[in-house]
Design a protein around this nucleic acid. Structure first.
Lengths: 252, 252
DNA sequence: CGTACGCTTGAAGCTCATCAAAATCTGTGG
DNA sequence: CCACAGATTTTGATGAGCTTCAAGCGTACG
């Protein structure tokens, strides 16, 4: 998850989506050529985001849809009784903030787990483009709909899994998403601490830790702090419950 | 949940959304006057749906968005290993099928738990209207976004609750939704069996049964088979964990 | 009236949370 | 570079809550 950015990301902010190293992962790829230029004009690119800095707060008015460009962003809610509830970890190329469109306000917090960068699409200006671009409108609907279907499925299934399967699913999902971005999916560094993982999976820190130790003892995983190596992905898949292979593939 | 329909539903299919007894619960209320007529023309109203009859199957191409008009519809998925996973129970006025927009195919099954009726909005024709109605487009986005935010919240919270709190939340949510539709929220008949409830809540039949018995023994609930009376809603709220009051209010 | 299905109830076992303490990592200042 | 303090992570022991397995009950429907 610690993104040693491989493509153009190390340099200056790019000037257009087409030049973006994450282009084929970014949603802009699906936008019709003509509208892409409009989008191009309003997107604010490559904004830096220090560790522990918030992208937005729950309740805050929706100002922009965001795309992670590097690093990792955690989204979470605060329950009525003050507990944090981690709802997701977002890797480069993934959109954040779509769930704010409904009430024009964010239902969640978003915070950088490490130094990161992101692109910002001002919602007000996006609206203007949307108003005479059925294509783009439809794309957004589509993205949101897919997101919903996937969120639902992931949560439903994770809910029913035991601790081992949850952790395995989590690791494999992360691995797959990293692989898709051209990173090493078999050996990576977790950007989040055990507390966040446990919270996200609905488990305790101790159970996550024990489960990771168990996986190591079984020889399917090597763990040293935040460094993780997947040794036997087949064994991990078994633990996750092979039937959920598609879930492991996950969102992005 | 067995809907002894109170309004115009007993008669012939209505001819326009404005005359629909569920009008203020139906999404059409938010549509601008001008477009409402367009919608009016394409909606297929009051289609009957016998018990155990499917509205659509998972994987099936998206043909229509549906609105429940009477009865109860269950949505569910089938996991890779063949298990059913109940994802929701839908009361009159609630939309089904939005999560199919993304892939133009339904991710879930939908089946009537009792004799029901529904309105159908053919997606292809809806598209045409959408193409030159930013308003309607935005409304759909909004509905979907809200749905996503709520789905996420509900699942996240339910995941962390113990059996008693889950059952209490489920009952109160149902009660609130019935009340909103002008039905008796304190005394109703469950359209779904214990198996469906247990599945939906991620519990076993036995645990649901025991929990209901416990609630009865505590004097907060009266249960006789599928007939349920909420005796002490305050006590139920306590069991649900008061901090989740908003969740109980639920989707619609 | 009887059979079948759904629901309830009981007892045993297992998984995970909780409480508690040791070990390891991280960053800071000498 | 090392030493130390605070935080994070691991490990251990115990117990609560839910599932599982196994009967019994009740209600619905032929």
């Amino acid at each position: 998850m610690s993104e040693p950015i491989s493509l153009k990301e190390a340099g200056q902010p790019t000037t257009s989506c087409r030049d973006c190293g994450l282009f084929d992962l970014c949603f802009a790829q699906d936008v019709a050529e003509s509208r892409r230029d409009d989008l191009d004009r309003i997107i604010r690119r490559q904004r830096p985001l220090g560790r522990d800095v918030h992208l937005f707060h729950a309740g805050q008015k929706l100002k922009s849809i965001c795309v992670v460009r590097s690093g990792t962003v955690k989204t979470y809610q605060i329950s009525r009784d003050g507990d944090e509830i981690v709802t997701g970890f977002h890797l480069p190329g993934e959109l954040i903030g779509l769930d704010a469109i409904g009430n024009e306000a964010h239902p969640e917090f978003a915070v950088a787990l490490e130094d990161s960068r992101y692109c910002e699409i001002p919602y007000r200006e996006l609206q203007k483009i949307l108003d005479d671009s059925p294509d783009l409108n439809h794309l957004l609907l589509k993205l949101l709909s897919i997101d919903m279907a996937e969120t639902r499925e992931l949560m439903l299934v994770i809910n029913r899994l035991d601790a081992r399967a949850r952790v395995a699913t989590f690791l494999l999902n992360l691995s797959r998403r990293l692989t898709r971005r051209g990173k090493d999916g078999d050996r990576f560094r977790l950007a989040m601490d055990r507390r966040d993982i446990a919270n996200y999976l609905g488990l305790t820190i101790e159970t996550v830790s024990r489960t990771l130790s168990w996986m190591q003892k079984q020889g399917m995983l090597a763990v040293r702090g935040k460094l993780v190596s997947i040794v036997e992905s087949d064994a991990l898949l078994d633990v996750a419950g092979r039937e959920h292979e598609d879930l492991v593939a996950g969102t992005g």
